[in-house]
Write a protein that binds this DNA or RNA. Sequence first.
DNA 1: CGACCAATGTAGATCGATCTTATAGTAGAT
DNA 2: ATCTACTATAAGATCGATCTACATTGGTCG
Lengths: 338, 338
Amino acid sequence: MPRVTLLDVSRHAGVSRATASLVVRGSPRVAPTTAARVREAIVELGYVYDRAAANLRQSRSMTLGLVMTDLSNPFFAELTMAFEHDVHEQGYTLFIGYTRDDLDRQARTLSAMVERRVDGVCLLPALGTTEASLAPLDSQHVPTVLFTRHLGGGRPYVGADNVSAGRMLGEHLRSLGVRHLAFVGGQETSSRRERVEGLLAGAGDDVRIDLPPIYSPSSTVGGAQAVSQLLDAGILPDAVVAYNDVIAMGVNVALWERGLEPGRSIALAGFDDIRIAAGQVPGLTTVATRSEEVGRSCAELLLGYLGGEPPAPRTVLEEPELRIRASTGLWRPRMETS
Amino acid sequence: MPRVTLLDVSRHAGVSRATASLVVRGSPRVAPTTAARVREAIVELGYVYDRAAANLRQSRSMTLGLVMTDLSNPFFAELTMAFEHDVHEQGYTLFIGYTRDDLDRQARTLSAMVERRVDGVCLLPALGTTEASLAPLDSQHVPTVLFTRHLGGGRPYVGADNVSAGRMLGEHLRSLGVRHLAFVGGQETSSRRERVEGLLAGAGDDVRIDLPPIYSPSSTVGGAQAVSQLLDAGILPDAVVAYNDVIAMGVNVALWERGLEPGRSIALAGFDDIRIAAGQVPGLTTVATRSEEVGRSCAELLLGYLGGEPPAPRTVLEEPELRIRASTGLWRPRMETS
DNA sequence: CGACCAATGTAGATCGATCTTATAGTAGAT
DNA sequence: ATCTACTATAAGATCGATCTACATTGGTCG
């Protein structure tokens, strides 16, 4: 069955194809009575606009790409929702892709989107990504905004101020009287380095900080394994800081299982303040890294670039916020036996 | 700057446009030496395949749509990942959209995808969706698979066997000695009704079941509010069953806050077995509803329909699995004072 | 030797919109 | 009456690929 096209519509309404085209785009250049007649024909024939055809002629496809590693961390689910909300409002439809931190998958995903003429891409670069990895985007001049991880270059970037987030947490723990803390989990990324850097600065010199090379995926299992490695190495700090909340949740269970009581006998904190962090037992102290604001800023920055504005390198850092809950709030330093 | 087209490539390689087209599509009908020459030209000119142009001529766009309410429940994040993985492998790129249970948004999202010529759509229908709501898809003959919620019609559908899931949980609780349970949270959907139905069947007539009209969004806050309503209504059951794990997590915190100890003084269970369910304190008993299998089956069913196969109505029900953890595992009936 | 075939390559129409340019028709100014 | 200005519409080229139908070549076979 052949598709109903603008030509059919125009014939049915007794106008030209060009006029019908103007009507579907809501141009004011066509007389109201003519427009009405065309709209009637559209309904009668059941015409459906074919953006694929329009794309070929136009430069815009009204389509954006959102590419990240995966959704195992709810932080990215929240970010996705916020981003989708904002761009949907502007009439854009979203391509999505997950790299699973695999450079090949990332390359294929980006190419697939470029081939489909995306107007812009928002990307959380996979581990090992270089500026050169983004050549497919650059060669076709696809505006690109990075988030959460940056490459050190001058490319537009949106993320939390991880250094500041780390510092807030470090200061909080020190003020509680924590004298010894350990940091575990996460991958070796820019944001992990920044969180650690801030943590060191915030905790100050009086606090002993263990930074064992214990990495993990963002999962509760990963967190449980990470803290097990820590304890098995004979390290028993006053406080454990996990790279993020999902990992902290795993640390939480593992600590309980070892007979420790997070929030009382040992302090525990994470990063991100994903929605379920408040719904843990004990409530998880964390530093909000603003998933929704990051998503929103990505949308804003990207949409701005599409407007033809020169892609002046720009960085947006969302201000983090400390959220103190029971996982550190109830902890008290052991009495010194003097 | 003009785009490099197949015409440019063909001229550079000294062949015709048609031949170049055959080469990019990997047709065996072109001689190896010619193909090599064309490929060389492609590299030299930096040619990028334009699927938007190809779409216009072809019937396939190698693009699918995945539409759901939102990602606040990790169940859907897991499902998304599985679905994306499978269709990506077949060369499809994914449009995504979130309806937030709003019929208008759903209509706009589906139309946007149809206008962009998706080859098929996988949909979790928003509350209130009717067969008529899906007219935009049907009128353009877009193969569609529903998941998680069905409309009662004969449309292809993938979901967990919720009745069976409910029954498993009901039987488990009864066998523990639970004499009084309450079900809370969730929206009024087909899957909620099915879970309740199964629960009643599994628990049997000896168990008192309270089904107060307490609904909630899928969030820990929603769960906490739901169970508070329950307790405030003067109902204190042996076991609380939440519509899903996210809600159960909220129930968990609220119970602790009220001085109850889930897993000991009161049993608690959810549905889905999202990944973090095992990472709760206490570990959450739940019935796995197989997010990944559902995603995978959606992909399989949808891809099957694209192959030109007649869209014979078909339903796939994934077999659930009971996962017993501490939130019910440690509970013991109070001694009867006889 | 002519018919037939397989392998390879090409010309030109086509997909369904948009864009540029042109042309009636009308109104107002001079 | 003529010219300018403007509105409303139309004709036809165009975007970049794919598809159909056909042409060419060289080889095989009766």
